[in-house]
Design a protein around this nucleic acid. Structure first.
Lengths: 367, 367
DNA sequence: CGCCTCCATGGAAACGATTCCATCATGGTT
DNA sequence: AACCATGATGGAATCGTTTCCATGGAGGCG
């Protein structure tokens, strides 16, 4: 019953040829039309499928590409994953998935697992810093980052300050400074990005700037930022957009969990009842903000205006529908996959995809 | 620079022992304490990692487990995937992911890909029917279904009737009948489920029944069901709960896409303005229902009551917050993974996980 | 007519691991 | 003192594929 799979040897035997010939026929090598046809027929009849194991072992090449995301429950990463999957499918490459939970340790462990599987092309939304990704690259992995860049300093989790704590170093991390290209009042978009680091990112800077300007235009002055893990670049952009006089109490961080996000949002609203607008750095944060506001009887947008980074299907369902900074999650994944696949040539450049402010109903004029 | 990975041979050489000894030490075989220590030291120093390729080839065993879901953008499948990932990680097994888009053809293709990768344990939310999964099983795959069962009849997509069309055969599909165990007015929960089919399912029947009773209790009589691909069991449960006099026009199907869901919902509201309650078979359908209702100026719950199958984080964000039938997506994934991992012994039984009606604000009394 | 080239073809090595089996040393028993 | 059981150890086969290389035949050209 359990018919074990036919091997190339079986095919060769049945077709009366050598295994080498079968291999050549199947991988497009030269062969006489007669044998080619015969081999093909036999292979089809035996339902022969070459084993990726054998092939990969021989070629010392990997099967598949790895995909590491913080949390598939977050719609954005789901979109990103769908993009990667779509591209990988069209290339016929399997995708090995890992969820890091925004934990550098788990991430490192998963990288090890991929290494063991001989998966040497990886698309990652990084949680850890150089001490994870340095070794990975050194082990010969082709890594493309998506949505974020890893923290610069070894051992530095990119989320910066811990949950509930208010703000961090006054001028952003090393990575952020580098991102901003060292020009304090930099020219308008497109932003200058670190070269040599293959990555696909959304144009956070432009998105955030647009949102801040929009809020400013509505009269808001006390604008808060609600950040999560991996939002360093967004925070930096926020600081840049706000200008020199950033009210540090209005920059708050949460970890990846929904509870933490809610706590951060609620804490922010309670400690600073004078704020008039909030910019949430991701959809989980946005959700938390809506929830916290409702819990505290703050009406949106009457009492507080809200902009969420990330467009998700339910943003339209909220009442009022949420004004968002949309980023093309699916495209980010797709492009990252393209990059990692054709990384054979010279190293791929970083790609920046545009964001878009979608104005719905969660922002109103200052009153 | 590109230090290629150390092989077992390198370790053996460096430790001055044979490869067999290294293998034994590393996989817990017998060895003298002295050599064991030496080998371990050398292995650590060389940062040796056994190649899964070599191992799997030799053992003719698969690396990893496959996971096939319709769409990672759907939060529910994201939760399910997280569950699988959690369990797989703790077992040290890599997960190969595929997204089927609810398309039997893509699904079959992905199964082929997994076969090629020698991945012979699969967790699937099936889209195709027996003509996909029969061959898969025959090829020696251990398959555990999650959330759904495949259609019984070959070539029969489990979604039954096509989008927009109204209802199907008057008494559910063969699969559903089998599910109901052939007893037309069956005893209350727990439902009798098909044995021998390894699967992890939510107790749709109880969930739907509870929801229908709840709506009935509020006075609703014209209750509609909005179904999507793979919702056969839910439809069947709905029919059963409603009783013999099912208004077939109130049972509507959409395909997996959000557009289709919206179209179905909108069409339903417009063609049957007399309905007073809607039961959405999944979160995408629920989202569509909310959107369509708003578009048509139907207020929830004043004009129409709404229950959504699936609890998702944003259900609470809606206003009013959505009353839902919660199913443990993460647990379903986790259990399915457990099942597929310890499938070595006798065949695993089907597992049914409880659902829960979470009453929030989207249902009101008939007026 | 002979030689050289070219192409189709098959044998065999290699990839990196596990595992069977033979070998050898050791220590205990008769 | 001879023998046997036990345990550590290394060699070699094996898994399924690709690929190098040798072989042999056919055909073209000098």
């Amino acid at each position: 019953m359990e018919a074990k799979r036919a091997t190339i040897k079986d095919v060769a035997e049945a077709a009366g040829v050598g295994v080498a010939t079968v291999s050549r026929v199947l991988s497009g090598g030269s062969a006489s039309p007669a044998t080619r046809e015969r081999v093909l027929a036999v292979a089809a009849q035996l339902d022969y499928r070459p084993s990726a194991l054998g092939r990969n072992l021989r070629q010392r090449r990997t099967g598949g590409i790895g995909l590491l995301v913080p949390d598939l429950t977050d719609t954005f990463f789901g979109q990103l994953a769908e993009g990667v999957l779509a591209c990988a499918r069209s290339a016929g490459e399997p995708v090995v998935l890992g969820s890091t939970g925004d934990d550098p340790e788990q991430e490192a462990e998963l990288v090890g697992m991929l290494l063991e599987q001989s998966v040497d092309r990886v698309i990652a939304v990084p949680s850890g810093g150089a001490d994870t990704w340095g070794p990975a690259a050194r082990a010969g992995m082709t890594v493309v980052f998506a949505d974020r860049l890893p923290a610069e300093r070894p051992g530095d989790a990119p989320s910066g300050p811990m949950p509930g704590s208010m703000s961090g170093s006054a001028s952003g991390s090393t990575a952020d400074l580098m991102l901003l290209d060292g020009v304090p009042p930099p020219p308008p978009s497109p932003p200058v990005l670190p070269t040599g680091v293959p990555a696909v990112l959304a144009d956070d800077r432009a998105g955030i700037r647009t949102a801040v300007r929009y809020l400013r235009g509505l009269g808001h002055r006390r604008i808060a930022f609600l950040g999560g893990p991996g939002h360093d670049r967004r925070v930096a952009a926020f600081r840049e957009a706000i200008g020199p006089a950033v009210d540090e109490d209005l920059v708050v961080f949460a970890t990846g969990s929904r509870d933490s996000a809610y706590a951060a949002a609620s804490g922010l609203f309670q400690s600073r009842p004078d704020l008039t607008a909030v910019l949430a750095g991701g959809n989980v944060l946005g959700e938390a903000a809506v929830l916290a506001a409702r819990e505290l009887d703050l009406r949106v947008p009457r009492d507080v205006s809200l902009v969420m980074y990330d467009d998700v299907p339910w943003a339209e369902l909220c009442s009022p529908p949420l004004t968002v900074i949309a980023q093309p999650g699916r495209d980010i994944g797709y492009r990252a996959c393209e990059l990692v696949l054709r990384a054979s040539g010279r190293r791929p450049r970083t790609v920046v995809l545009p964001t878009e402010l979608i104005v719905r109903g969660s922002c109103g004029p200052l009153r």
